[in-house]
């Protein structure tokens, strides 16, 4: 990893998904990836903004990109796929001169958004690579059978995100295999969790997230790995609601991939926010402790 990376945490990572931010920062530090927070960053616009006004939504995202570019950064990473989508949408729309003009009026500054934007997962996979990551893993994830859940936005819209096979991404699966875990054959990798419909139509989320949980259980996984704060919230925080709706009990822990990576890198559980979950993460730690004890590591 050569140049420093502008880091755009996104709002969720300061609240409901604090453990995503914590574990991302901790992993990157251990891996020697320098993260420089975008100065004075604000909301990317997320869903409500683009549903109201495209130019306004793009201006919110563009402001953050421009702030990042002011620091001289040419690369930006964000853990949240929804933030990444907002940033990329702004970049793509601003390629149209007319649209760009409208955004510039709103921003009061030029909106040349040439900075390269990627997800943390993509940065780790592309800039470090599986071999380097495996090499830095001091504690294998042996004993874990991980169902990797990518959510809808990691690979879609296809043209804009341009990351892996839109229907069958494998980045996280390959990562966990490299870290010594098993990859469970999980069918609903890119299905929707219901996303923000939790507010207006809760039962839609319970139905969709319920399916994902059931499929993860069926795949024989003992942990579900995610890369999106909203997916994690629906699957973890709404667990009791889902159980009430489907009548199926599930104790499957839902961890961010960075938390699992952090464990493999030898980071302490507090540094990874493993205590911040609704569904207990204890079973994961128990399995790993047994592994590490028998292999005399950690």
């Amino acid at each position: 990893m050569s140049a420093a990376l502008a880091y755009y945490p996104g709002c969720s990572q300061t609240a409901s998904a604090r453990e995503y931010d914590l574990s991302t920062r901790a992993c990157c530090q251990t891996l020697g990836v320098e993260l420089n927070d975008v100065p004075d960053w604000t909301c990317c616009g997320s869903t409500p903004a683009h549903a109201t006004d495209h130019a306004l939504a793009a201006a919110l995202a563009a402001r953050n990109l421009a702030q990042a570019m002011d620091t001289g950064a040419s690369n930006l990473a964000t853990p949240c796929p929804s933030c990444l989508l907002a940033l990329r949408t702004a970049q793509s729309r601003c390629e149209n001169e007319g649209f760009k003009g409208r955004v510039e009026v709103l921003l009061g500054r030029p909106a040349t958004l040439s900075i390269r934007t990627r997800s943390i997962l993509q940065v780790l996979m592309e800039d470090l690579g599986l071999e380097a990551l495996a090499e830095k893993a001091v504690r294998p994830l042996k004993g874990l059978r991980v169902a990797s859940y990518y959510g809808c936005l990691m690979t879609r819209p296809v043209g804009l995100m341009a990351f892996e096979d839109p229907d069958n991404p494998t980045a996280m699966d390959r990562l966990f295999l490299a870290l010594g875990a098993e990859a469970a054959p999980f069918a609903l990798k890119t299905e929707c969790c219901g996303a923000a419909l939790g507010v207006p139509r809760k039962e839609a989320v319970l139905e969709l997230s319920g399916r994902i949980l059931a499929a993860a259980e069926e795949s024989g996984a003992n942990v579900l790995a995610v890369a999106c704060p909203l997916c994690q919230m629906n699957l973890d925080l709404r667990r009791e609601q889902i159980e009430g709706y489907t009548g199926q009990r599930s104790t499957l822990p839902v961890l961010y991939f960075t938390q699992l990576l952090g464990l493999a890198l030898g980071l302490p559980e507090e540094a990874l926010g493993l205590g911040l979950h609704n569904v207990g993460t204890r079973p994961v730690l128990d399995i790993l402790r047994r592994t590490w004890a028998s292999e005399d590591v950690g």
């Binding site: 229907d167 054959p185 069918a187 609903l188 299905e191 499929a215 069926e218």
Partner: peptide
């Protein structure tokens, strides 16, 4: 929209 394995069959 999708075909995926479920209970030993395909959904």
């Amino acid at each position: 929209s999708s075909v995926y394995p479920k209970n030993g069959r395909l959904a």
